[in-house]
Design a protein around this nucleic acid. Structure first.
Lengths: 337, 337
DNA sequence: GTTAGCACTTAGGCATGTCGAGTGCTAACC
DNA sequence: GGTTAGCACTCGACATGCCTAAGTGCTAAC
């Protein structure tokens, strides 16, 4: 029994199953792929593959379907990433160039990716931590309620309402704004934390508490916040592949709404040498995604922000991986260096 | 044949069907509701209701289910809005009070509403057109690419990247910023359009083109934009009620992704005297929602922004309407006058 | 190591029969 | 005239039995 042929058989099974959605038998296999041996031989190979846990039979007399482990081997060793067509590349470029807003860029990107793959696409807001502070604004909305806005040179704009703990007038707030801005304009977001105490301590004691609250608000804005959000498109594709999620797509939709879970999942996925990370079925830490696979990659300056696709384990990995990688590259280019 | 009893029969059919998801027959009806007449009489009433197009039988020998028209009559004339429990009211209040950000408020609100109703909940960003300009910021991101940020006194922050059509240095951009801000600070967003030409014409001719582009960007920010967005939660509830959407939930998910469609739908729905608007099944202009109903209402100062719930036509209207109305009220209160 | 052949298993399609729920209609009743 | 009992009829749901096609595992021969 030759080892290379066995892998070839696995490849054929995965490809046929992804295409037909039906368990594939030994006879159909020799017909569709010219393997040069008889179906009986294939049966032996399949028995071996089943012993190794790479494929399984839904019932005694049906064909075989790949297991999670089988898909994993396929993705890691057998498949070749299938490049996008020129038309597709042109479409991506044209669509992305028409965008203005950052929100708009991400929105278009994720729609494009979901259309290319016929799956659910998600993209995380990009990290922009090397930015420096361009402007700070405090807006008194109601007594003690102040809107804090932070604008960075990269175009990042963050906002948040905080309670300053004491009643201050419009002019006092404006003065604080000027004071903060004078001391902080131009410094990088990462050094903000160390600069804030000095700014606060030079405020008159009567307004110290408010300044402290404002400083805390700024710090929060600089670090967390927007990177924790994501944009999503193509959930309707889940329903179309009704067959793929035998039980129900409910758990998958739940997982998609739990953005925290999804973000952790994307961050934890390790990229392989080809620059794409794949998490298959029960490899996913979240139970609701036991029958789903995620294909993701990083984008942007440090590749820290993630973009990816989610679909049934029975997915066309080569094409999906290619699409994710290509879209991530275009997105990185659009967002600049 | 008494008219009041006929309505009572319709009410009983709707309530039983909503509860059991199964066509309801004449015998079951007299058992569960003490109507004081025999099943044969009910059969006569049901035949009349069917003639009027209020109920229908899926096949010859099954019970009846309400039609869209039947639900409409039920909602308009028969049902009484069912108030929320004290525990539910407390939960709403407690949850909303913990929020800081506007985004956070809307996020919590929509999650709460989807949990209360077990349906998909949507909320539109609030309109804040009476705001006046607090600050304007221009940030040069790349040659000719400028990020325009507009901050209003109400806490609204809008941003957009525009192409100014000519190369200008950082200092020139800063000067333009100062010029715009000096002329525009304090004026209301609605009067912005009439003030802009004057500002642009007083710019030196060499920078006139850029100023024109910036003015156009500001105008766009002031008007459109954020009100056109919405937040959504509870899509997983669609899957749970798998039975409710016999064909597939695909079209519904598509409709939910087409936010433009959804926004128009919400805006076009006319509120009834009870302060809630209901659109049932094929009453919806969008085909994908032919088997869905939308319950919505306005909130905020002018009740112009919308909040609502989407679910199968077979939904518990009295409870849902109560939940939507209550949540909208709490939301209005939190957002202030 | 490969192949042909064969017994065995099983899902799925199809025809058949039965059961129960529910209807519509008619004639009698108040 | 509205209400009721009774009855024949319809139709889906379900179970049963049967058959076929697909596919497997195994053995013996090549």
């Amino acid at each position: 029994m030759s080892e290379p042929r066995k892998l070839e058989v696995l490849r054929a099974i995965v490809e046929d199953y992804v295409h037909s959605r039906e368990p594939v038998g030994s006879k159909a296999l020799v017909e569709r792929h010219h393997l040069g041996v008889s179906s009986a031989t294939i049966r032996n190979d399949m028995a071996a593959l089943e012993d190794e846990g790479l494929i399984t039979a839904p019932h005694t007399s049906a064909g075989r379907i790949p297991t999670d482990k089988g898909y994993r081997l396929f993705v890691d060793q057998i498949s070749a990433v299938k490049p996008l067509s020129h038309a597709e590349r042109r479409a991506i470029q044209a669509l992305l160039e028409g965008a203005d807003d950052l929100d708009d860029v991400l929105d278009r990107t994720v729609r494009m990716l979901s259309q290319l793959t016929n799956q659910v696409a998600v993209v995380q807001y990009p990290h922009l931590s090397r930015a420096t502070i361009r402007h700070i604004e405090f807006v008194l909305l109601a007594p003690r309620q102040v809107l804090v806005v932070l604008i960075a040179t990269t175009g990042k704009v963050e906002q948040r309402v905080i309670d300053i703990g004491q009643d201050l007038g419009d002019d006092a707030i404006a003065a604080l704004r000027t004071h903060f801005l004078g001391s902080l304009a131009g410094i990088s977001l990462s050094r903000l934390t160390s600069s804030l105490p000095g700014v606060v301590s030079s405020v008159s004691p009567g307004q110290r508490a408010a300044a402290q609250a404002l400083a805390h608000g700024l710090e929060t804005l600089a670090h967390s916040s927007r990177e924790e959000r994501m944009v999503m498109a193509g959930t309707a594709n889940l329903a179309r592949s009704n067959v793929d999620f035998p039980l129900s797509i409910g758990p998958v939709l739940e997982a998609l709404e739990e953005q925290v879970v999804l973000l952790r999942l994307l961050s934890d996925m390790a990229q392989d040498p080809r620059g794409v990370a794949v998490s298959i079925g029960r490899e996913n830490p979240y139970d609701g995604l036991a029958e789903a696979s995620v294909v993701a990659t990083g984008y942007g300056p440090d590749s820290t922000a993630k973009i990816g696709v989610l679909g049934p384990t029975r997915m066309d990995y080569p094409t999906t991986m290619a699409a994710v990688r290509a879209v991530a590259r275009y997105l990185s280019r659009i967002l600049g260096p």
